[in-house]
Structure formats: structure tokens, C-alpha cells
Amino acid sequence: MKKKAARRIGSSTAPARTDAAVADLEAALNRIAPFKLAAEWDNVGLLAGRPEWPARRILLAIDLTDAVAREAIRTETDALVLYHPPIFKGIRSVTPRAECPTTLLPDLLAGRVALLAVHTAMDAAVGGTNDVLLDAFDPAERLPLTPAVERESEYKLVVFVPPAGVERLRAALAAAGAGRIGHYDECSFELAGRGSFRGDETTNPTIGQRGRLEHVAEIRLEMILPKSRLGGVVRCLYANHPYEEPAFDLYPLAGIPGRGQVGMGRIGRLARPRRGDKLLLALSKRVDLSAATVVGDLNRTFGSVTTAAGAFGVSFFTDPHSLVLTGEFKHHDALELLKRGVCAVCLGHYTSERPVLDAVRARLTADLSGAEVRIAKADAPPLRPLPTSIFR
């Protein structure tokens, strides 16, 4: 590891210097495949290392095997970007026996090699893993198989206020962070109505008298706000509402990011129906199909192609007019697909994800000026076909 440090300081053979740090690399990956799109159970982003570490030499791989780790150490890599997170569950030690696909985790960290992962964020992103597979067919339209949903990312505030206090309250709530939709601010909705209340002997009502049932004209004012601004907006409401005890409701909202264009899996509507064997011929120019298997009939036409890289499961594969390309499924899954009349090609888990690395390399090279971005030569599928020589 000392040799690595010395070379970086004094060797004229080092690549052109860049100010890119691990934090810049993480930000670039987040632009390519926003981490918020990842499945809740996943582990993406910076997994090991410091944000301020340099990121001059970047190595990409699907899995962090011992072979990939050795290549990273040998080539003095600064950061490893992995498709599958090498640190997935909580680990209790950083030793060769750590719950990790490589025994060299201590060596990588000792050499200040940062580890980052993209996984299901890349699966869901526009231009990500499943779109790269669809590129082989030049579809006329693309849409997610399961649109992404952000649960409780925003809230809707509904507050009841007398007409004379609406403008002041709306402006105050907007200044506190409510009412922003995209590039528009102070967004709200009003509805006139009639409210009632009766204060007990401890109250000091702004309108009417304590102990008497009052009926007043009120405006129902609605505004949305991000979860991060919830506390500040509620405090602002209490400070600026004319009533002693404001009446308001908060409703958690589910957000649909990317205008409904992002999500797990992709469906590509073809410009015209195409035979399944012709579609696979087009795919074979980009993807290694030597170990692929198929369930169903390829010798018919399809109006769309569904791509679901990795271990997606088969519950969403229900359209018999869409050719499915996925990473893996089990024997009984294949029987279920046959019953549904769905034709599905099992590419292999690694094979279905590997093509996206070329796209990630191109994007990172463009985004991180001066950084050297490579795909690991040692990266390879853990499963391979039996050599034909053993049968001779």
C-alpha cells in the first residue's frame, strides 16, 4: 500500500490529476440513478470509505469477488462501483471472514478504496439497466412495469381560517416551505364553507364568546409540503393563524417520481409487432445469449418487450403479447408462465445486468473530468456452462 501512495505523489505515469473526490462520484451516480429509487431493503450509495477521498481511478463491476478486489488493488483503484452491494446486511467485523463476497475487504479499506453500489436504483432509473436492454429493439414507447412510489415523502396541510386571515397565513406558510410544486411556489387551493365551535371557560376566542356555539364563515386552505419541512410549517401555522386554537389536518401523500416514468422493470412498445426469434437475434448483438433459456413459444409475434433484469420474480409477467427478458426464475415459476401463455427468456442474473456497466462508464467519464473509469477485466458471472470437452 505504501507503493500505491508513493506512485500517486511522484510518478509521471499517473493519469491527469482531477479534483474529483468520492463525494463527487457518489453525486454523479445519484444523478444517473437516484438512490431514492432503490428498494427499501436495498443498500446503495457510498458503503465504505470517506467522501473526501480522491476518485481518480474508478473501477466498475457487477460483483465484488476476490478477483475484482485483487484487480482494484493491483491497479491502484480509488473507488469501486459495484452493481450488487458487497455490504448488504450488518457486518460484525471487517476481516477475511466478514459477510461479504470477497475475503479482501480489509485489504481494500487499508488501501483507501471506497466502495459504492447502485443495484435497484439503477434498475428503476430511466436509462438504467432495463432501458439498456430495451435499446436493442428501438421501442416506440417506454414505461415502467411497476411505477416507483415515494411513500409519505410529502404531506397535505388542510387548515380552516377566516377569510380575512387567508392571505397572511398563505404567505407565511409558503415562506416556511409549503405550497411548492415543481418550479411553482405559493400553490394552494381554497374552498369557502361554514365552521362551528364552542370554547369552554378557559378560552379567549378571536371571534364570538366563550361558552356559546359560534358559526362563522371560513376558508379551507390546502397546501402541500415536503416531510422535511413538517415541523417548521406547523410552528409557522400556530404563529400566524388568527385563532387561539387553529383547526388543521395533515395527510401523508404518496409521490410518483419522474412523472410516472421511473420504476422497476420496463415495457417497450414496439413500432410494429415482431417475431420472438427476430427480437432475440437483435438482442444477441449486445448481450451474450449462450447460456439463455426460454419458456414458451418464440415463433410468434409480440407487440412489446418487457425487461426485468436480475431476480425480479414472475408475478408481474401477465401479458402474453409481451416478450419477457429477465435474469432468473425457478422451475415452478416457469410452469406458471406456461399456464399464463407468457413467453419469457431467462438471460442469467449476471448477463441481464452486465450491459449497463458500459452506459455507466460513459456517463461517469463525461461527468468526472480527468477521472479514469474502467470496467473490471476480472468481473465475470459466477455460473458458466460446462465445457464441451468433458463430454468427448
Rank of each mutant, 00 (worst) to 15 (best):
K2F: 12
K3S: 09
K3P: 06
I9A: 15
G10A: 13
G10W: 15
A14W: 15
A16I: 02
A16C: 09
D19A: 14
A20P: 03
V22M: 02
A23I: 04
R31A: 13
P34S: 10
E40I: 07
E40Y: 15
E40K: 07
V44C: 02
G45H: 01
A48Y: 03
P51R: 15
R56T: 04
R56H: 08
L59Q: 07
L59T: 06
L59E: 14
L64M: 15
T65R: 13
T65F: 08
D66N: 11
D66P: 10
A67C: 09
A69I: 00
R74K: 15
R74D: 15
T75S: 12
E76Q: 14
T77C: 12
V81N: 03
Y83I: 00
P86W: 00
F88P: 05
K89W: 10
K89N: 08
S93K: 11
V94G: 07
V94K: 03
P96Y: 05
P96C: 05
R97L: 06
R97F: 12
P101M: 06
T102R: 09
T103W: 06
A114C: 09
L116R: 09
L116V: 09
A117E: 01
A117Y: 01
H119M: 00
T120R: 10
A124K: 11
A125W: 02
A125P: 04
T129V: 09
L134E: 12
V149Q: 14
E152F: 02
E152P: 07
L157Y: 01
V159N: 08
F160C: 00
F160V: 05
R168A: 15
A175Y: 05
I181V: 11
I181Y: 07
E186V: 11
C187F: 08
A192C: 07
T202M: 12
T202W: 14
T202Q: 08
T203G: 00
Q209D: 15
H215M: 14
M223G: 07
P226H: 01
R229D: 07
V233P: 01
V234N: 04
R235A: 15
L237P: 10
L237Y: 03
H241R: 04
A247T: 04
L250Q: 08
P252F: 03
A254Q: 14
I256T: 15
I256P: 05
G258C: 06
R259G: 06
R259K: 15
R259P: 00
Q261A: 12
M264Y: 13
R266W: 10
R269E: 08
L270Q: 13
L270S: 09
D277N: 14
L280T: 01
L280S: 04
L281M: 13
D288W: 08
L289N: 03
A291R: 12
A291C: 10
A292S: 10
A292N: 09
G303K: 03
T306C: 02
T306V: 08
F312R: 03
F316K: 11
F317V: 03
F317K: 07
P320A: 05
H321V: 12
L323H: 11
F329V: 02
H331P: 01
E336G: 10
R340L: 05
L347Y: 15
L347K: 12
G348S: 07
Y350A: 04
T351S: 11
E353S: 06
R354C: 01
V356L: 02
A359N: 13
R361P: 00
R361W: 03
A362K: 12
A362H: 08
L368P: 07
R374D: 09
R374T: 07
R384H: 15
